[in-house]
Design a protein around this nucleic acid. Structure first.
Lengths: 341, 341
DNA sequence: CCCCTTACAGTAATCGTTTACTATAAGAGT
DNA sequence: ACTCTTATAGTAAACGATTACTGTAAGGGG
């Protein structure tokens, strides 16, 4: 294994100074004669030279990486987001550093610090716990885009998705189907989005919604925690004998688990219980019954987030469209008491 | 936004030389007096100093990033792998740079180059097309672990998963269920794994297996291509009137699509046609009928791959266990003609 | 013919670390 | 008392790029 060629090697071989070689590769306006260009190009090719990004970064202090922190890549909503991010990022010459926080606060902080040390100038957070303090980062030139704009983080930019309306749409749908009492199954209300969905539901059902909050938060690395949580909690509710005919899950993955949990008890969805999710991940149309849900376009969200963080980094003006929640009615919801029609 | 503190700032504030500060943070054997340690620690804290990885990398030429290239993160098998990689990597102080090739050769090459420029010393490839030439990289100190050991890449290390045996197990299972003629649905045989699965199947079915190869390869960014491919091709086969009673799909995602495609035509799985997949992703037990498949432990594979690449980078000896394929029988396979029993 | 501008190239400082050397002082061993 | 280690600290040269300056030659306008 021989050493990598450096800009100096190329300069020597081509018979020009490193400055000229640097300019040739920078390809910004600075003029380089065609004679020089030809010789440098040739030398670089023969030496198999390609610029060392690290050297460049040290000097220019401009990383072209953006950090992305998500709870877990096993919930397919996040791969969607990630692809959107990658798409926008790639087209603007940025690459992503992926971090799975596994919903663990300490891991999240560790990753944020590590990104900071790597001179990353922008982080997209999809994992943020409320009140996690980033103040110190802000002052140090770090930009943050929070996928769910969180009031508690004053200087974070956010993609504004109307979770509240999402919750309202779902609740309205169930109400239309004559469901009198419903349950909302969720992980802890430590994220604004979850609180908002609940608020939306309450705006319709007032106190006739049973909120069932899971007590555990940290993700396991094996198995899909949300799915299992859905199964477990659906079972708990049904066995508790509460008069519930509809369940809204905080996301599709949980919703899929809820359906499974209900069916495992020998009951029918939606005959006995209607179930709805949130996100509209691909899975929701693959399972049966297919899942009624709110479409939250992950890919689009990702694209938006990436463009936003890059605009922040590059000091451009930012101004984007909102993404609107859309109700997707599928087979998992039906009239209350529908089985006995 | 004020400037980040550098090692020099800390040195001045603490009243020691940068060398000592550097040693304090390096925390390798070099002795630093407790007096110095205390003062440096204090100064660093007050200045909110944290080492600049870029500066360090330039000097030490040792990136602690490893590149991971996968076809698409939308097939949940890869998130599993990725989590495994992240787990091992994190525990050894490495971080991952994620790249989705979208099964596009050019994108793959672009990413590889970009990783090389970033001084990454090791890449885990899950995307490799056969014959993609990495020779030039090898000579430049880049290590490569190919998730499917590919003979055509002499110097790549690989995780040895016995795809052939996997194919054999599935075929054997169908044979046991009296299926006379089956089909194998796959994307192009440009990966060794796919060829091996087919070989395994053929070792049992000889020429009584219809191999249906999809012609498109590049991934779309929206929708899960493999799922749609499965749907489409299942439809094609059935409409062609071939006397097939069992279908093996190249992976679970495709298999899920196959089941959907069959059911959309009003047929029953496994009553009319048995279907099997490969991978054992979570999805395969969530759909109905649940999918018979081969368990390929993605998480374990990822852990192995990460340890391997890091051992290669650090010059350690490498020696690992093989992962064995395991047949998982679920509801999507049954006796040939089972519907009419 | 003189002045100005433009094209082009080189010199050398700089980015934030690490580390090979060099240096000093305190014990340890004889 | 002399040599050998060991602990501790500093000096200064890298690492591979970028870029502010400086300089030169050619061409244009007057």
């Amino acid at each position: 294994m021989h050493k990598r060629a450096t800009i100096t090697d190329v300069a020597e071989k081509a018979g020009f100074s490193v400055a000229t070689v640097s300019r040739f590769f920078a390809d910004n306006g600075y003029p380089v004669s065609s004679d020089a260009s030809k010789k440098i190009e040739k030398a670089a090719r023969e030496l198999d030279y390609t610029p060392n990004i690290v050297g460049r970064m040290l000097k220019t202090n401009s990383s072209r990486d953006i950090g992305v922190i998500i709870p877990t890549i096993r919930n397919p909503f996040y791969p969607d987001v990630l692809l959107g991010i990658e798409k926008s990022a790639a087209s603007r010459g940025y690459q992503i550093l992926l971090c799975n926080s596994m919903r663990d606060r300490e891991t999240e902080i560790k990753y944020i610090n590590s990104l900071y040390q790597k001179q990353v100038r922008g982080i997209i957070l999809a994992s943020a716990q409320n009140n996690l303090s980033y103040e110190n980062l802000a002052g140090k030139g770090m930009h943050i885009v929070n996928l769910e704009s969180d009031d508690s983080c004053g200087f974070c930019s956010g993609i504004d998705f109307d979770y509240r309306l999402g919750g309202r749409l779902l609740a309205g749908h169930l109400k239309d189907m004559n469901h009198e009492r419903i349950a909302f199954i969720t992980s802890p209300l430590t994220k604004k989005s979850r609180q908002d969905i609940l608020e939306g539901i309450r705006s319709i059902y007032k106190d006739r919604v049973l909120t069932v909050i899971d007590n555990r938060e940290t993700e396991d690395e094996t198995g899909i925690y949300e799915y299992q949580m859905g199964m477990r909690m659906a079972g708990d509710i049904l066995k508790s004998g509460k008069s519930i005919t509809g369940i809204i899950a905080v996301n599709d993955m949980t919703g899929a688990g809820v359906i499974k949990g209900i069916m495992d008890l020998g009951l029918d969805v939606p005959g006995d219980i209607s179930v709805a999710g949130f996100d509209n991940i691909d899975l929701s149309s693959m399972i049966s019954p297919s899942l009624t849900t709110i479409d939250q376009p992950g890919f689009e969200t990702g694209k938006l987030a990436a463009n936003m963080i890059i605009d922040l980094i590059e000091g451009n003006e930012i101004k984007y469209d909102r993404l609107e929640p859309r109700l997707i009615i599928r087979a998992s919801t039906g009239k209350a008491g529908g089985k006995y029609d």
